[in-house]
Write a protein that binds this DNA or RNA. Structure first.
Lengths: 103, 103
DNA sequence: TAACTATACCACTTTTTAGTAAGTTATTGC
DNA sequence: GCAATAACTTACTAAAAAGTGGTATAGTTA
């Protein structure tokens, strides 16, 4: 099913409209994190979904990946400028949930 | 998989984090619409998904449904106060998509 | 009386998303 | 030699989301 190109909202939802993407982006707002640390922050995510989701975010240029050539591996993730530009939206979603869940 | 109750973002995504929900809400921002008209605004949605999605929005108190007892049926949908409180977020998502898609 | 209307339901199938569990890598330290 | 490590990767399965096509309704109009 094709999306309506005329609706930018659709464009946005295609980029971040999944279960885990907003969560991962949100947890990177404050600081870059090592792969394992970030994953532990996202309660409930499976190893597979984490890798898969962050790969897509990377492919879409919302997240960057920095690999340190050491053993054992060290990988760091952070937001790109494009990713950072989502900050108001992510905070908005979070704030709305906080407020609404108290009603 | 349970969601992290501690993260309000998760709460919000549970309410509107699907393919069609934000679209439907967005198209109701300006005015209440008859079922058929609304559905035609959402390009690509199937009849079944429309009904199913709007039922959930109604159940969650984001959308109200007004039925006129006439034949053929007339049904109107609109945003509740709770639904309207999502306006900044919906517009934010739309605006972000518009800006980003031009880069 | 038969077609038309707007809305919504149901059964069924396909597609997408998510979860589990195991295996891979290359080096350190015992 | 072998376990421990961090970050994946793969094969398989389960669950959720979405699509298709058909049916019901009951007045109005032709």
């Amino acid at each position: 099913m094709k999306n309506d190109v005329k609706c930018p909202l659709n464009y946005t939802m295609n980029l971040i409209g999944t279960k885990w993407k907003p969560l991962i982006l949100f947890h990177l707002l404050e600081e870059n994190l090592r792969s394992g640390v970030l994953q532990k922050h996202i309660s409930g995510i499976s190893n597979k979904m984490f890798t898969q989701t962050i790969r897509e975010l990377e492919k879409d240029g919302l997240v960057f990946r920095k690999v340190y050539p050491v053993v054992p591996p060290k990988v760091e993730y952070g937001l790109t400028e494009r990713g950072k530009s989502l900050e108001p939206i992510l905070r908005g979603l979070d704030a709305w949930g906080l407020k609404d869940s108290k009603i």
